[in-house]
Amino acid sequence: MKNKLFEKYFVFSPYFWLVLFFFIPLAIIFKISISVSEWGMPPYQDIFLFDNGFKINTTFENYVYIFSDYYYIGSFVNSLILALISTFFCLLIGFPLAFYIATSNIRLRNILLVLVVIPFWSSFLLRVYAWKIILQNNGILNVILLNLGIISEPLQLLYNQYAVIMGIVYTYLPLMILPLYGYLNKFDLNLIEASKDLGLNRIKTFFKVILPLSLPGIVAGSLLVFIPVVGEFIIPEMLGGSDRLYYGKILWEEFFVNRNWPGASALAFSGIIILVLPIVIFQILYSRWSQKNEI
């Protein structure tokens, strides 16, 4: 009897907190996203009206408004492309690093792993700020390039989409390396030797042995990078210019500048549906697929 009480306490304390402070806020976003907007405070009408009998006052106009305007769709597409490119570069840099760390001897491996992850512990905002210093017109990169005689006048490196990609790859790299390392670490190195003995060359060994076995790590790392990057606000704000608008910026401005709460909520809720829902589905499918393939 006592055990049950205790179990309930353990299960329901966080349950209560998360329903109240996580689920209900998400529900409120949905509620406001289907409200009729108006001038005033708060800038939307209630969805239940009682003045002349009970009436439900909802609209999908906010969604129609967002999905019919290229300004919003275009920004979201920009964010998706940005996330795709950044994830690709994180993988390109992260994979060889994770692979070589995982194949080092044990003592070196732990040191290297800590070294790779430690920058992740230092402030995110300040790491982005560091790139602002490096990419300045009179910044260290331009100075080096000028002194080497590669360029004759400073390049405009900051405030464009390339600077944004640079900042993202830099700050999110550890998030890619960790799960990759996690899977590569479990991996039996003899398999590579075996594959070579069986006559596969390096390229074939990579594509037939190493890549399939590290696929779960690649998927996990890519998701950890891709999703937050779609909603990224700080990096484009600090390093980006006006050449491209992104989802995060649009959402921020819709709420704080245009004071269009229903519109901002519709944007946010669409983001949840487009980003988070596929992952839940994907995880279910993937776990089924991997179960089937292991047997």
Partner: peptide, 21 residues
């Protein structure tokens, strides 16, 4: 769902939902 979604939800959406809440 409740205990793992905050890991992947973009901070911006989380912040907006908390404010509106």
């Amino acid at each position: 769902f409740l205990s793992s979604t905050p890991l992947v939800l973009p901070e911006l959406i989380l912040g907006l939902s908390m404010l509106l809440f």
